[in-house]
């Protein structure tokens, strides 16, 4: 077998150069794909879906903005707040139903938080005792909630004022009763910023970000093409690596054959 021609050597040399250059370019993508891939494979163990991103820059990048709607009512040193579509008792999240918050009142066993759709009874530390809705005789369209002079809970609906009994199992219309209605109240600045952090922070699970980095979607639809390009680079590396190895092996064999004494 004859030695490769100069033209062939130049071609081979250029393939080495390209393999090296593309290898360096692909290295960054390989690291990103490998690290995010390993993390996603063990997503359950790492609790990626339960962990949330707190970085303002990243939240801004995803368009998760602080909500415009921020309604708060105070009672006995506690605040109930609607931030966007979520409800909070102080800084603890309550089950929300998307309805507007209308107030909070003190009860012997805790608090009653009213939205237009119903009432949530809470313990002193904010644990949910019960949700009261249409089945329990609490009509939809509550406009205000308050207490009477003797401490009974009262709510104003579109047509009447209803007063609840002690166990809140029945509601009676009692016109003309004097009621102290719950009034909106601005929460302290520290609580407000904590709620905003919580609202924004709960919106972006770490798993979502890792998936987007892995697929390139974190850079928008162009990012997907970038990762497609990276995949093509890796395919090129695999092909060129195999080709170079095969050429070297063939070259070594032909050298050995030439040196072997006849």
């Amino acid at each position: 077998m004859t030695h490769p021609s100069r033209k062939q050597r130049r071609k081979l040399h250029s393939l080495y150069v390209w393999h090296r250059i593309i290898g360096l370019c692909a290295a960054l993508f390989v690291v990103i794909l490998a690290l995010t891939g390993i993390a996603l494979n063990h997503g359950d163990a790492l609790q990626l879906s339960q962990r949330h991103v707190q970085s303002s820059a990243l939240l801004n990048w995803y368009g998760i903005q602080p909500p415009q709607e921020f309604v708060s009512y105070a009672c006995a040193g506690h605040y109930v707040t609607r931030v966007g579509d979520r409800l909070y008792f102080d800084a603890s999240a309550l089950p929300a139903d998307g309805a507007n918050l209308v107030g909070i009142v003190r009860l012997p066993q805790g608090f009653a938080v009213a939205t237009t759709n119903g009432i949530r009874l809470l313990t002193d530390d904010g644990r949910l005792i019960e949700r009261l809705g249409a089945v329990e005789g609490v009509p939809r369209g509550i406009a205000r909630i308050g207490t009477t002079a003797d401490g009974a809970i009262a709510m104003q609906t579109a047509h009447e004022i209803l007063i609840g009994d002690e166990s809140l199992t029945s509601w009676q219309a009692r016109p003309g009763v004097e009621i102290l209605w719950s009034q909106p109240s601005a929460p302290p600045a520290a609580l407000r910023s904590r709620l905003l952090r919580s609202f924004r922070g709960d919106g972006l699970p770490l798993e979502r970000v890792l998936l987007d980095i892995h697929s390139g979607r974190i850079l928008g639809h162009w990012g997907v093409y970038v990762m497609d390009g990276a995949a093509l680079l890796l395919l090129f590396l695999a092909a060129s690596g195999c080709w170079l190895w095969l050429r070297n092996r063939m070259k070594q064999r032909s050298h050995r054959r030439l040196r072997r004494p006849s």
């Binding site: 644990r127 949910l128 005792i129 019960e130 329990e136």
Partner: peptide
């Protein structure tokens, strides 16, 4: 917990 597979979110039931 055993029946539902999760905690009941309320402290009382009507």
């Amino acid at each position: 917990d055993k029946i539902l597979g999760h905690e009941l979110s309320a402290l009382r039931v009507r």
